[in-house]
């Protein structure tokens, strides 16, 4: 973390428990994400990925998007990780350690990764600086009493975003059929 970021944490808008939780989660997520791309065991990579995805779900909770958090847990942790493990199993990937998982582009990868990171963090900090999160927009536009954001979310999906929603469902079906056709054995 650079100096500016530390100074951001020291700002007076500090909300102690939430920020402590965020810091712990973020540290775990970054470590786990790095392990995903560096570990030499394919199954371990999938398990580390699970940590990252769970962390993302917890972040959603911190951002007060409970429905999204539950979806994240159910779909990513429940379904997609299992799919990955199946993928590992069906392609007979080496289950133990193997020193043959990376190609020779590691320096290029590091440079490009840092380049992207530097650019994005520079512009993010420059643009949003120390903007505080406020959750008023959640309740303002939808006129929902109390904290029932899930209801507001479902209303939004099935009214304002109905057509994108239908398109997505058709896309999912198409992908399903496509996956069957591609993976079919004959």
């Amino acid at each position: 973390m650079n100096a500016q970021l530390i100074s951001l944490f020291a700002a007076e808008t500090f909300e102690v428990p939430a920020n402590i939780a965020f810091s712990i989660i973020a540290i775990f997520m970054v470590i786990a994400a790095i392990r995903v791309v560096t570990t030499d065991n394919v199954v371990h990579a999938a398990l580390w990925l699970m940590v990252v995805l769970g962390g993302v779900g917890l972040n959603f909770l911190l951002l007060q998007a409970e429905f999204l958090a539950m979806t994240q847990f159910l779909i990513y942790l429940g379904a997609i990780i299992v799919l990955f493990l199946f993928g590992v199993m069906l392609t007979r990937a080496p289950l133990g350690r193997s020193d043959d998982l990376d190609n020779k582009q590691r320096p290029i990868g590091i440079v490009v990764g840092l380049l992207v990171l530097g650019l994005v963090s520079y512009s993010v900090i420059k643009t949003f600086g120390s903007d505080k999160l406020d959750f008023s927009a959640y309740d303002g536009s939808q006129a929902v009493a109390g904290n029932n954001r899930t209801e507001a979310l479902s209303d939004a999906i099935f009214s304002q975003y109905l057509i994108p929603f239908e398109v997505i469902s058709v896309l999912l079906l198409a992908a399903l059929i496509g996956a069957i056709v591609i993976a079919r054995r004959d």
Binding site: N103, Q105, I108, G109, V111, V112, L115, V116, L119, Y122, S123, K126
Partner: peptide, 19 residues
């Protein structure tokens, strides 16, 4: 993957120019 590296690098550089 080499193409991917070039692509990301080029995109980052271009975005950097804009920024």
């Amino acid at each position: 993957q080499q193409y991917a590296a070039l692509f990301f690098a080029a995109a980052a550089l271009l975005a950097g120019v804009f920024v």
